[in-house]
Amino acid sequence: MNTTLKEENNELVMYFEGRLDTAAAPEAEKAVAPLKESAGRNIILDCSQLEYISSAGLRIFLSVLKSVKPKGDHVYVRGISDSVRAVFAMTGFINLFEFK
């Protein structure tokens, strides 16, 4: 799984590519650390190239949300596929995040 962090329009965008399964989780955990520390900027989690996400990945997303939201910044999830969307729905994460 590849992660790419970009800054766009004064927003931090993390591009996920590939499968965010339990095996890839530890690495992804590390990659999102800067996002958790950011402040004053919205976070966009770009999942256009995300094929698959498991509970480990969701946990990472949640931890980002938990860190950012209290600071008043938004966390957007962008371009999720249908299957990923289904997983978000099953877990109720569809209510937690803002989608673009």
Partner: peptide
């Protein structure tokens, strides 16, 4: 069971796995 209606703040980290299994 995990309560999927809780807010982000209230949501616990654990328990998602079994929830997904049951769902699927």
């Amino acid at each position: 069971e995990v309560d999927t209606n809780l807010s982000a703040e209230e949501r616990s980290i654990g328990g998602l796995g079994i929830h997904l299994i049951r769902q699927i």
